[in-house]
Computed example of a mutant assay.
Amino acid sequence: MSVVGGTAPEKAKGKEDDYLFDTEWDHEAERVRANEALWDEGTIERLDRLGVTTGWSCLEVGAGQGSIVRELAERVGPGGRVLAVDLSTRPLLPLARPPVEVAALDIRDDELPAEQFDLVHARMVLQHLKDPYAAVERMVRALRPGGLLFLEDTDALTLFRSAASEDFLKDVHTAAYTVMEQTDYCMRGGHIDHQAALRAGLEDVWAEGRAVMVQGGSDRARMYVLWLEYLRPRLLGQGLLTPERIDEAVRAMNDPDNHWLSQVLISTYGRKPA
């Protein structure tokens, strides 16, 4: 792990090749920002609940475009610390000023600073990993005694449930997750987070789920449009969907008359024994 500024690398050891989403895709930054628009409100509500405040030292794993990094920096103030880590740090570099530090890091292999953080948070990271249990162990080692681990990953079962019809985009759901699970992606990642927190010996472990209703054509819907467009070449290459069906699904996602349920994002919390 190398901390920015200075000459720190923008990528962690070139290990993005087996990650589902390519950070060099033309629309990847937009997809991540749309994902933040979908989930940030609920994450921020939970940071309120956890009492994250002035002077805390926080670690954001898989910091993306940095929306939660900015939220944490505002909360901890100049006397606190926020370390933002990701495979690619390019989008995070503009945030690299006190109290924010930025580091290129691969949570699959790289060790974190030991016993330095009051809070470690990761959202939609662990369900992409072959061994999420090992990653959680690294995060727990980074916590100070009494520190909080806050994990967020999804259960995809509810996605596209809709009043429109029983099978609204059901074939798209099945095809897309067939492709995603050919990588290390796990559709039940939020459940794995809970098990990993229990295995790691944390105290007061509990979990809850939230879902949001998405309106077609909205910023939230844009995330699903970009998700499908990113998967389009693989879906077509494997014959799982036709070009016409993908185009039809994109039109449905852009139609303001359509509303559908998101995945359930499961939040897991636990405290390192003091």
Rank of each mutant, 00 (worst) to 15 (best):
V120L: 03
R141V: 04
H121Q: 12
L112N: 11
L151M: 15
L119Q: 09
E115F: 00
A114Q: 05
L129Y: 00
P145G: 11
L129R: 00
L119E: 08
K130C: 03
V125I: 08
G147T: 08
E115I: 02
Y133W: 09
L143Y: 05
D131Y: 02
A114G: 08
A114I: 14
R144I: 03
L148A: 11
R123D: 12
V120F: 03
F117G: 04
G147W: 09
V140A: 10
E115Q: 10
G146P: 15
D131M: 13
R138Q: 10
L151A: 06
L143R: 04
L149D: 14
L149G: 15
A142W: 07
A142F: 11
V120M: 11
Q127E: 13
H128F: 12
F117P: 13
P113N: 11
G146F: 10
L112D: 04
V140R: 01
F117T: 02
A122T: 00
R123Y: 05
K130T: 13
V136D: 01
E137R: 15
D131L: 09
V125S: 00
A142M: 07
G147M: 11
M124G: 11
H128R: 08
M139A: 15
V140T: 06
R138V: 05
Y133K: 05
V136Y: 05
D131V: 02
R123W: 12
K130Q: 09
L148K: 14
